[in-house]
C-alpha cells in the first residue's frame, strides 16, 4: 500500500521536473530569438530587388552560351576548379594519414594526452575557413590556382583527420595481435593489419571530401585563388546576368556530376 502511494507521488514530481525543463528550454530559446531578431537591421526591400531577381532568372533561362568555349571561358574555369579540388584533396588525404593515427583514442590510457592534443589541432585547423586560408596563401605564393590548392589541402585536414581517427578507433584488434604474436615489427603490423582495415574508410571519406572541395573550389575565385569563382564575381559585379546564369548552370552541372561519380565509387568501396 505504502509502495503504491510512493509511486503515485513520485510520478507527478518526475513530470513536474520535465515540465520545468521544457519551460526552461522554451524561455532560453525565446530569449535567444528575441536577441537575434532585435539586432537585425530594418528590413526594406529595395525597389530594384524584384527587377534584379527577374533579370537573374532570365539570365538562367537564357544563358550566355558564347561564354562556354574559349580560353577564358566556362569550360576552362570549370576544369581549373576541378584541378584545384583534385590536387587539394590528394594533398590533404596524404597529410591527414598521420593525423588520423595521432588523434585516434588508444587502448592504453597513456595516450589520452596525445589524443587530446591531436584532436585540438584538428579542430583548430577546421575552424579556419578555406577562404581565409586562401587569402593568407595568396599573400605567400601570389594569386592563382596554387593558393587555392594549398588552402583546400590544409583546410580539409581538419575534417578528414577527425573522420580518419574515428575509422582507426573502430578497427578490429584481432589481426594486429595475431601479427604481434608472430613477431612482426611495428611497420609490418601497420601495413598488414591496420592499413587493410582502415583503407576503404579512408578512401570513402576522401571521396566525400572531394565532393565538398569541388564546391569549395568553385568559390575560391571570388578572392582570387583560381577557378570559376573569378569570372562569376566579375559577372555579378558588372551585372551581366546571362553570364551569371551560364556560370551557375556550369557549377551546378559539375558538382552534380562529381557527386554522382564519387557516390558511385563510395557505394562500391564500402
Amino acid at each position: 500500500m505504502s509502495q503504491l502511494s510512493t509511486q503515485t507521488v513520485a510520478k507527478p514530481t518526475g513530470r513536474g521536473k520535465r515540465m520545468f525543463n521544457r519551460v526552461l528550454i522554451l524561455v532560453i530559446l525565446a530569449a535567444i530569438y528575441i536577441w537575434a531578431f532585435a539586432g537585425v537591421e530594418t528590413f526594406e526591400i529595395k525597389e530594384t530587388a524584384g527587377q534584379i531577381s527577374k533579370a537573374i532568372l532570365n539570365g538562367i533561362i537564357q544563358p550566355d552560351w558564347d561564354f562556354v568555349p574559349g580560353a577564358e571561358g566556362l569550360i576552362y574555369g570549370l576544369i581549373d576548379t576541378l584541378a584545384i579540388s583534385i590536387l587539394g584533396t590528394f594533398i590533404s588525404a596524404v597529410l591527414t594519414i598521420p593525423f588520423g593515427f595521432w588523434a585516434a583514442t588508444r587502448r592504453d590510457k597513456s595516450g589520452f594526452f596525445v589524443t587530446g592534443i591531436g584532436r585540438f589541432v584538428l579542430s583548430f585547423i577546421r575552424v579556419f575557413p578555406e577562404v581565409v586560408l586562401a587569402i593568407i596563401f595568396i599573400k605567400a605564393v601570389g594569386p592563382g590556382s596554387f593558393a587555392g590548392v594549398l588552402a583546400l589541402g590544409l583546410h580539409s585536414i581538419g575534417m578528414l583527420g577527425k573522420l580518419f581517427a574515428e575509422e582507426v578507433e573502430a578497427i578490429d584488434h584481432g589481426p594486429k595481435e595475431a601479427l604481434i604474436a608472430t613477431g612482426a615489427n611495428r611497420l609490418q603490423v601497420l601495413v598488414y593489419s591496420v592499413l587493410p582495415q582502415v583503407l576503404p574508410g579512408f578512401i570513402s571519406y576522401t571521396l566525400y571530401r572531394f565532393e565538398l572541395n569541388v564546391r569549395g573550389a568553385s568559390i575560391l575565385g571570388i578572392i582570387g585563388a583560381g577557378g570559376i569563382g573569378a569570372p562569376l564575381i566579375f559577372a555579378l559585379q558588372s551585372r551581366n546576368w546571362p553570364r551569371v546564369g551560364v556560370i551557375l548552370l556550369g557549377i551546378i552541372l559539375l558538382v552534380s556530376l562529381i557527386d554522382l561519380i564519387s557516390g558511385y565509387f563510395r557505394k562500391k568501396i564500402v
Partner: peptide, 14 residues
C-alpha cells in the same frame, strides 16, 4: 550544389 558564398553573392546583388 550551390556553395553558400555564391548564394550570398547573388543575394547581395539582389
Amino acid at each position: 550544389t550551390i556553395p553558400e558564398l555564391l548564394l550570398a553573392a547573388i543575394f547581395v546583388a539582389i
